[in-house]
Design a protein around this nucleic acid. Structure first.
Length: 245
DNA sequence: TATATTGTTACACC
DNA sequence: TGGTGTAACAATAT
């Protein structure tokens, strides 16, 4: 499930390997990320966007397989292979203007956010349940189901809490947890839960640090309680009922 | 074969 | 009206 840390990992790897080369005849000038979208910018001011959704992969020089949807040839003979089991992932070429439109509909990047801004954002959505809110890309960019669960556990916040009920201390704890978990996950190269592989075809190392995501029925590492799974909306949420209030 | 999977979005409701 | 919650949708593995 490529969320911010996974896409950021791919971005860094591609950045080192493809800048200055030609891809489909266009010279790559930058590789960026906004929310969970990977952005390859070209000298002609167009950009190639990828959203990997659940099961998308972007791997350099992989051997094309059953789930390869597209192969992009690079001017040095290498190739960028786009795989996707579920076919939900997409890619498209956009103009600078179209890219700006997409970006302005996304919430702030977590790493550029201040606690003061975050508190003000929460105050605007007092009745929203905190977990769906963290996953709302228009509220804050880049967080999906894995990291929402892990962030809320680290912050000691129950996923069903309404944003407006969080006190100052809890907001501080949640804010710190967002940065802490995402940073640690980027450092580990993301989480390989099912299909995720980085641009070199390797798994990310963060899944072994997961404390609640897909740990239903297991003992909480902090308190020895039992991790529960509930559905919020139509999504699964994993949490420790003792640690998260 | 029914079910689970998740980001996104359409839509119903208050 | 707009904030909120729910469900549908994409396609596939198990």
């Amino acid at each position: 499930m490529p969320e911010l840390p996974e896409v950021e990992t791919i971005r860094k790897q591609l950045s080192e390997k493809i800048i200055g080369k030609k891809l489909d005849g266009r010279t790559v000038t930058a590789v960026k990320r906004r929310a969970k979208i990977l952005i390859i910018e070209f000298a002609d001011k167009t950009a190639l966007l990828f959203h990997l959704k659940l099961t998308g992969q972007l791997i350099l020089n992989a051997t094309p397989g059953k789930y390869t949807r597209r192969v992009f040839d690079l001017s040095d003979g290498s190739r960028l292979v786009f795989n996707d089991v579920r076919k939900f992932a997409w890619h498209k070429t956009v103009s600078k203007r179209e890219l700006e439109d997409i970006e302005k509909n996304l919430g702030p990047e977590p790493f550029g956010l201040t606690e003061k801004n975050f508190a003000a954002m929460l105050a605007e959505r007092p009745r929203a349940k905190i977990k769906p809110l963290l996953m709302d890309q228009k509220f804050i960019a880049g967080i999906g189901n894995i990291y929402a669960d892990e962030i809320l556990f680290a912050g000691g916040i129950h996923p069903l809490r309404q944003a407006g009920t969080l006190d100052k201390k809890e907001i501080h704890s949640l804010f710190a947890s967002i940065k802490k978990i995402l940073k640690a996950a980027v450092r580990a190269g993301g989480s390989s839960v099912k299909d995720y592989l980085d641009a070199s075809g390797k798994e990310g190392g963060f899944a072994k640090h997961h404390k609640v995501y897909q740990k239903t029925g297991q003992k909480c590492l902090e308190c020895g309680g039992v991790i529960r799974r509930i559905r919020i909306g139509s999504r699964s949420a994993h949490f420790c009922p003792k640690c998260q209030k």
